[in-house]
Computed example of a mutant assay.
Amino acid sequence: MTANVVNLVTSGVFELDGGSWDVDNNVWLVGDEREVIVIDAAHDADAIEKAVGERALRAIVSTHGHNDHVNAAPELARRTGAPILLHPDDRVVWDLTHPERAPDGELRDEQVLSIAGTELTVLHTPGHAPGAVCLHAPSLGVVFTGDTLFNGGPGATGRSYSDYPTIVRSIQDRLFALPDETTVHTGHGEGTTIGAERAASSGWEKP
């Protein structure tokens, strides 16, 4: 059986560099009726736990360490026993929110996570954050991009630990290598496709 994808939108505050902004985040659940993973445990552990239900939560996967993507992760892990996974290059960002609690495991480039008979390949895509990753599920025709690629272009790079030329290279080298029809499930807002963003990229600021 192939896994299905469920989207939960949670709301809270993104904080970095002394600023704060109200945000809505996409939390993604990938699994079947028995087991599931959560991609980006944002803001509301109660709502995420309810969405998981009676299923076994196998992992809490963080696309990067900004507070609005990980602020509910430790509480969700405490309740469910699921490990929190993060790319080690983003530990410096994670520690801004959770200095007292380390992630439980590391994500590696090209690592394959399996859930409900479905494989998700980790793609290290730095730029928005040094350890940002995307998760490509070829059998589902989707990629979960966190804040690396949105409907309308690259994620923000105007704050600490981010870099515009780096995010553009990540998108061009890693994400634009995926099939055009691949659906992009983003960290905020509406989705898009790789083909649509590739077609629009000629108008991006050049690094």
Rank of each mutant, 00 (worst) to 15 (best):
A51M: 06
N67G: 14
V38R: 11
V93C: 10
D68P: 11
N67D: 09
D104T: 10
W28R: 00
L107Q: 11
N71G: 08
V93E: 01
T125F: 02
L140K: 13
D32Y: 13
E54A: 15
A72N: 12
V133L: 02
A137Q: 04
N26A: 03
L113R: 06
D44Y: 13
D104F: 10
A137E: 04
V52A: 07
D68F: 15
V93D: 01
A132K: 12
I37T: 02
A102D: 10
E35L: 12
E106W: 15
L85I: 02
L85A: 10
V122L: 08
G105L: 09
A45Q: 03
T125H: 06
A137T: 02
L135W: 03
A82L: 08
D32P: 11
G105N: 09
I48A: 01
V133E: 00
P88A: 08
A72E: 03
R58Q: 10
D24N: 13
L76S: 12
R78P: 06
R108P: 09
P130I: 01
H43D: 00
Q111K: 08
E110C: 14
D104S: 13
A42F: 07
E100S: 15
D32T: 03
N71L: 05
D68T: 10
A82N: 06
A129K: 09
L86W: 06
A41P: 03
Q111P: 07
E106F: 11
A77Y: 05
V23L: 06
H66A: 05
R101T: 06
T80K: 10
A41H: 08
G131D: 03
D68R: 08
W21M: 14
V142R: 00
A137C: 13
D104Y: 11
V143I: 10
P88T: 02
V61R: 01
A116Y: 12
H66C: 04
V30L: 14
T63I: 05
H66M: 09
A137V: 09
P130W: 08
D90L: 01
A56D: 13
E33Y: 14
R91Y: 09
A132F: 12
A51K: 01
G117R: 07
W21Y: 14
A42Q: 03
V92Y: 06
G81L: 12
L96Q: 12
V112H: 14
A59Y: 01
A116G: 14
S139H: 13
G141Q: 11
D22T: 12
G131V: 02
E54T: 14
R55A: 06
V92E: 13
L120V: 02
A82F: 02
R78Y: 07
C134Q: 06
G19R: 13
H64A: 08
E100G: 15
N25V: 00
V36L: 14
V133C: 04
V23W: 00
D104G: 15
V38L: 12
P99S: 07
A42S: 15
A137G: 09
D32E: 06
V23T: 08
P103A: 10
T118M: 11
E35P: 10
G53T: 05
G81I: 09
L85F: 03
V30P: 02
D24S: 15
E75G: 10
